[in-house]
């Protein structure tokens, strides 16, 4: 049996993604992880009315990625997505700027040149009210396709060992204190990443009864990874950004191969 698995392994070759050495492939960033990137001016109002989460902002041509749940409803209102080459052509006449994807730099005590986390980086995931899809995408990072350990990133189960707190889900009343306690018991220096529309803005659940607020109102957030759920590669990009292994500019908002 052991022999079989060795042969099996050789036959299948290396599955692990080439990222971050090379750009992510199309397979790794699926169609529904890419937000609209352009819209003719005449369609803004219509888009604003269709959008279920108010991601398309009032009268301006901006799109708040932290709110977008990638439902593609706005495509009926003439918003343009990247996966259709004809749409790309249309975008020449259309104008749309996007809000900054990463709202904050790795902030506070970390200057841009700090390389403190470059070698080993321990992450703790905390769920404060997700639908479970974001959780699964974070867990998927440890499968052979993404193989976190090759980059020196490890999962941990204790806040005392964690360098970064990965928060998923729409903050629920019942979880506010738990979130604060977990954050407080982490040793300095520490970072926080909020993952998915729910954590960044409340996403589709922002008007439900038990939703409290976005994560950054409760604890300081350093990096956000928009998506519903973001694909594992996008989460990985967020983690690498924390480790100072990629530059912020490498995450090109809305384009293929970027976030």
């Amino acid at each position: 049996m052991v022999k079989f698995w060795i042969l099996h392994g050789i036959k299948n070759g290396i599955l692990t993604t080439k990222y971050p050495k090379k750009k992510p492939t199309e397979e790794e960033i699926p169609a529904r992880s890419v937000p609209p990137f352009a819209a003719p001016e005449s369609n803004w109002i219509q888009g604003q009315e269709t959008c279920p989460t108010d991601a398309i902002e009032n009268n301006t041509n901006s799109l708040d990625l932290g709110r977008c749940i990638y439902c593609r409803r706005c495509s009926d209102a003439g918003f343009i997505f990247d996966d259709n080459p004809e749409d790309r052509h249309k975008s020449l006449q259309a104008k749309i700027s996007q809000n900054e994807l990463i709202r904050k730099e790795v902030a506070g005590i970390f200057s841009k040149k700090t390389n403190i986390f470059r070698k080993s980086f321990h992450i703790l995931m905390i769920d404060v009210g997700s639908c479970n899809a974001c959780n699964l995408e974070v867990l998927n990072l440890s499968n052979p396709y993404y193989d976190l350990t090759r980059l020196g990133i490890f999962f941990t189960n204790s806040p005392k060992h964690a360098d970064v707190l990965v928060v998923v889900g729409a903050l629920n009343k019942a979880m506010v204190d738990v979130l604060k306690q977990t954050y407080d018991s982490m040793p300095e220096p520490k970072l926080v990443i909020s993952i998915g529309a729910c954590a960044i803005s409340g996403g589709i659940f922002k008007e439900t009864e038990s939703f409290v607020s976005s994560i950054d109102k409760v604890i300081p957030v350093d990096v956000t990874v928009p998506g519903c759920p973001p694909s594992p590669i996008q989460i990985l990009q967020g983690l690498l950004l924390c480790m100072n292994k990629i530059e912020k500019d490498e995450r090109i908002p809305g384009s293929k191969g970027g976030l």
Binding site: S130, C131, N132, A133, G169, N172, A174, G203, I204
Partner: peptide, 28 residues
């Protein structure tokens, strides 16, 4: 701990809009 109250929230919504909530009740 993470009750979002989807059933309650859906009342008064159009079915198309409620669909977005319902499919995000349990992602998997």
């Amino acid at each position: 701990f993470k009750k979002r109250g989807v059933e309650h929230k859906a009342i008064g919504m159009k079915p198309e809009d409620a669909l977005l909530l319902v499919e995000r009740s349990a992602g998997n």
